[in-house]
Design a protein around this nucleic acid. Structure first.
Lengths: 126, 126, 126, 126
DNA sequence: GTGGTCTAGACCACT
DNA sequence: GTGGTCTAGACCACG
């Protein structure tokens, strides 16, 4: 289920894009599944249809969905997408590590923090 | 020396803030050093003084500098700042790791990637 | 056999038209051959019959088939069609060459590329 | 100068994109030149500003321009762009040649037509 | 009913 | 004044 956070400074369409990307990457939405129609989703979220359409446009541009005029939007094959997403995440990490290194924070300190943090998160879930 | 990238989508004042934060955290600017005056820096970068003013306001708000009316802006004591910065970096990392985890990327995969990446960077520098 | 690519951004009826045009031009469908009935083809492709109807209408308008009320649709004489098709192809090429020329790409560069490309394709087929 | 053809079936924003791409590729607009502002151009062409903005968004996505918030849109470095454009043109040509080949039109026939056509165009210009 | 495009008009952040 | 985002409402092509 999609929820919009109006306190989030990011534009709404970007939030929608992110939510769907995760739904697709986690397999909650499988290949060739039908996306909710632009108008329907707009009503559900009480958002303007144009905003949803912009989100779908972006999702199509990134290869997550494909559009069939007059029929709707559908989820693409997800195999390659997961690889791309991993690259994207890793790029973000690299950037942060670079700036961290500039400020004198070493690799070990970072990886230590992450593994500790992730342990904590895992235990929360279990 | 501060360089502005006009092709960067981030606002200019934010770029200025970031650059100074690094200069201070790395020790290039030490405690109680005088910051360049708003007007001087504006001229140097051929930027609107208001933009510099805004950057300095933000730096003061974050505790990196303090203002003395009629005398200028000065660098704060950096000891506490480094801790704050580390927290900030770690928060960013935590966020990314969370979304990565949601998409099925594990902690080990992430720490492995980072340690490998940082090795490559180190060897570049040496 | 007709195959529809739902991921293709072009409307379905246009895809159907194109497929039949090629079948006719290559001689796979000869003059006066009977076209599959609208309903049959619609069922086969699990498409709305209106879509097939529209494709046939377009094919008739372009002179590729003719309709006999109560009997069905039939392929026209193909001799003249091939000439028309060649004109069409050449027009498309001319358009592209014009825009290429505007951007400073010369005729020789284009013909060189094409002859090289076609060589590669030929060798693939053999 | 940009002119819009309302009889053209393509969307307006796409026409605007194409016009600017040519202006940039031909060097009529050089690197770091300022694009006309969204509102100004909208007024000049008596078009809605949103339509222009969409065109600029697309141009930015394709790497032809970059945006500086609050200052305007500017032309990117054009060196790599020309190569990309050539690739694009060649891809279109390859597609057409493929379908032509399927319909029994050979490579020689095509290159002959093009070289002849381009000769005619050249003589028109001179 | 579906998405694609366009218009009109508004508000915000940045300079 | 500049672009970025969003809303509201309209028309068209497609199925």
């Amino acid at each position: 289920m999609i929820v919009i956070d109006y306190k989030d400074s990011r534009p709404i369409y970007e939030q929608v894009v992110d939510k769907f990307r995760l739904l697709i990457l986690t397999g909650a939405l499988g290949a060739n599944d039908k996306m909710p129609s632009v108008r329907t989703l707009a009503m559900e979220l009480s958002i303007n249809p144009n905003t949803i359409q912009r989100a779908y446009m972006e999702l199509e541009r990134q290869g997550y969905i494909y559009t069939v005029k007059g029929r709707g939007n559908f989820v693409s094959d997800t195999n390659t997408l997961k690889g791309e997403y991993k690259k994207e995440i890793f790029n973000k990490l690299d950037e942060i590590c670079d700036t961290a290194a500039k400020a004198g924070i070493g690799a070990k300190e970072i990886t230590d923090h992450i593994s500790e943090y992730m342990k904590g998160e895992e235990s929360k879930r279990s």
